[in-house]
Amino acid sequence: MNSTRTQIEKIFNDLKLSDNEVNLIASVLHKMQVKKGTILLKAGDVVEHMYYINSGCMRTYHIDENGKEHTMQFAVENSWISDFTAFFSGSKALLNIEVIHDATIYRLAAKDKLRITQKIPQIQNYINTKLELIYTIMQKRILAKLSRTASEQYIDFITAYPDIEQKVKNYHIASYLGITTESLSRIRKELQNTKFY
């Protein structure tokens, strides 16, 4: 029970939970080991789950009508990932989820999320806080796209994700920034002698 409690408290940011609440959460969180290259969600699927990343790295991405990938989000340890718009609205996915570094994750189904938030209101508060953070990050990213140079966006990226460059491919980072891999290489060269390297 102690190891279960420790893991659940880690996932839910040290919420104070009773033994019964811990047991209820443990009964609906499903631990999974997923390998690099696994696609957990494809655009067009019904979105039935959200995922907590205990270790590893994943991304959400969209493929446009020309077949070009646009990375929307990276998720590393202690993050949640899903196509949240589809998850909460019951619509079909617009995004894909790919495992880009072997991961240990916990899967939570929509019906089980509803069950635990009804029985444990502080879990709903926790989820609301996480969604507010995700919304804030996305809004800042949109504003950066509109007003900041590619170099400035790259600096923002490595500041937000300081250890991620060892885990992901250059084209993932380039697709997140909306630039080519060649432009990414040029930006890195320009920044080589600055405090960012």
Rank of each mutant, 00 (worst) to 15 (best):
H172K: 04
S82V: 00
L114S: 15
R59N: 09
D14G: 11
S175T: 05
M50F: 01
S82Y: 00
V28P: 01
K130A: 05
N66R: 15
M1Q: 08
S183V: 09
D45F: 00
T104Y: 02
D14A: 15
T180Y: 09
T180F: 09
N170Y: 02
E182L: 15
L17F: 12
Y126T: 03
L24A: 08
K167C: 12
M72P: 00
A160T: 15
P162T: 04
P121Y: 01
T117N: 05
E69S: 14
G90E: 02
T180N: 12
I137V: 14
F157K: 13
M50K: 04
N128M: 11
Y51T: 06
R5W: 03
A93W: 01
I164C: 07
S151M: 10
V22F: 01
Y176T: 13
I8Q: 02
R188E: 01
I116G: 03
N128W: 05
D19Q: 15
K119I: 02
N20G: 10
L146P: 01
D102M: 07
E98L: 11
G37E: 11
S82P: 00
I97V: 09
K36S: 15
Y161W: 08
A93S: 14
Y161I: 07
E165D: 06
N193V: 06
L29E: 08
Y171G: 04
K31S: 08
I39Y: 05
Q33T: 05
R141S: 03
R148L: 11
K10F: 04
V46C: 09
N128E: 13
G44R: 06
S89N: 14
N78M: 08
L108G: 01
A86P: 00
Q73P: 00
C57G: 06
I164H: 06
L184D: 06
V22T: 05
T181C: 06
Q33L: 08
D64S: 11
D45H: 03
F74E: 01
I155R: 13
N125E: 13
V22S: 01
F12W: 03
Y61G: 02
Q122N: 08
Q192N: 13
F74K: 03
N96Q: 07
D83N: 01
Y106S: 10
K16T: 12
H101R: 15
E132H: 04
E21G: 10
R148T: 06
M72R: 05
K140L: 13
K10T: 11
L146I: 06
A144S: 11
T159D: 03
D112L: 05
D156F: 07
V99C: 14
Y126D: 02
E152I: 03
V46L: 15
F157S: 08
A150I: 10
S151F: 01
N20E: 15
S3L: 14
N13K: 13
N20R: 15
T180C: 08
I116W: 05
D112R: 04
